[in-house]
């Protein structure tokens, strides 16, 4: 099974790499979030391929995909749906919103008002939607990819820390390198090749792989390292807001997922390091005006990988 799972994942990531050129690390992080059953926040400027990546992910897994462009006049009902009066049957019927899909892309999440944002974030945490006292379960898998513009841009409502915490990983795509951009400009790749993608993992296979993530082994020495990292994020003179227990849980889960993608049945410090910035970057707040990502990188460089107590 491991072999097959490995082959499937490799296939998926190579297909995605065809769509998003030169961003194999970010693609792998996106897969990590998906396999770990967490949500993904893509933060970047417009036009960097956020939507393409989201679309690509849904294509590869053969999942149902819906997209909502968040704007400042978006209402919660536009996202989660509403109860509508049917004149023929004289009944109120629930009409499901776009959120009832396997992959939901919330484009430019921080352009919506907090009210609309919170409707989505509630659904992310509870995996169900309550309308007029009735609970509606969301499908499984349920995966939210939100994109967000850097907050310095005008007309945005920054997400509060408590809501940022709900995203397992935050990834920035960044500008492509010259080679990738040249290939893009030649028009052989990119958005057009989305249609050429084949589904290579079924929904059932995805669920099996997701179930395997928590079983990836972690030794005491590794957890020692994780705890040293987490403790460093709580060091008062450096950080204002450190990693919460939910944050450290996210770190461990992401590292397991990353290890699985690497084809291992145990987690190495390398795995933790690979996901640490994506996990901690949006969760910690620096004492000075340092960006969370920079701070996370700093912490990573400060903490010794080696060492620990025998339990």
């Amino acid at each position: 099974m491991t072999q097959t799972a490995q082959a499937l994942i490799n296939l998926a990531s190579s297909q995605l790499n065809n769509v998003i050129l030169g961003k194999s690390n970010q693609v792998r992080l996106a897969l990590t979030a998906l396999l770990a059953g967490g949500h993904l926040l893509l933060e970047d400027l417009p036009g960097m391929g956020k939507t393409t990546l989201a679309h690509g992910l849904s294509n590869v897994f053969g999942l149902e995909y819906k997209r909502v462009q968040f704007t400042s006049d978006l209402l919660p009902a536009d996202v989660i749906g509403a109860t509508v009066f049917d004149a023929k049957t004289s009944e109120f019927n629930f009409r499901a919103g776009p959120i009832f899909s396997d992959i939901f892309l919330a484009d430019e999440l921080n352009r919506a008002t907090p009210r609309a944002q919170s409707a989505l974030l509630e659904a992310m945490e509870e995996r169900q939607v309550s309308i007029d006292g009735e609970s509606h379960m969301l499908p499984d898998p349920f995966f939210v990819i939100a994109t967000q513009n850097p907050q310095s841009q005008s007309g945005t409502f920054p997400l509060p820390e408590s809501q940022l915490d709900r995203f397992l990983l935050r990834v920035s795509l960044g500008y492509p390198d010259q080679g990738s951009e040249r290939a893009l400009l030649r028009g052989k790749h990119g958005r057009k090749s989305l249609d050429a993608m084949q589904q290579c993992i079924t929904k059932e296979q995805l669920l099996t792989i997701q179930a395997r993530v928590p079983k990836i082994n972690m030794t005491d020495a590794l957890l020692d390292y994780v705890q040293r990292l987490v403790a460093q994020t709580r060091e008062q003179d450096l950080v204002l807001l450190g990693l919460s227990p939910r944050g450290s849980l996210a770190l461990v889960r992401s590292a397991q997922s990353w290890a699985l993608i690497q084809g291992r049945d145990h987690v190495l410090p390398e795995d933790v390091q690979a996901v640490f910035v994506a996990v901690a970057g949006h969760r910690i707040v620096g004492r000075r005006e340092t960006q969370g990502d920079q701070l996370a990188r700093q912490i990573l460089n400060m903490v010794d990988v080696v060492g620990g107590v025998r339990v």
Partner: peptide, 23 residues
């Protein structure tokens, strides 16, 4: 392992804290 790092230091190879054993 720390002893090993000390030996390496004598050869002029200093280990940064964030470097994993493999690295």
């Amino acid at each position: 392992y720390r002893k090993f790092c000390k030996r390496m230091e004598k050869h002029g190879i200093l280990r940064e804290p964030q470097q994993t054993p493999y690295e």
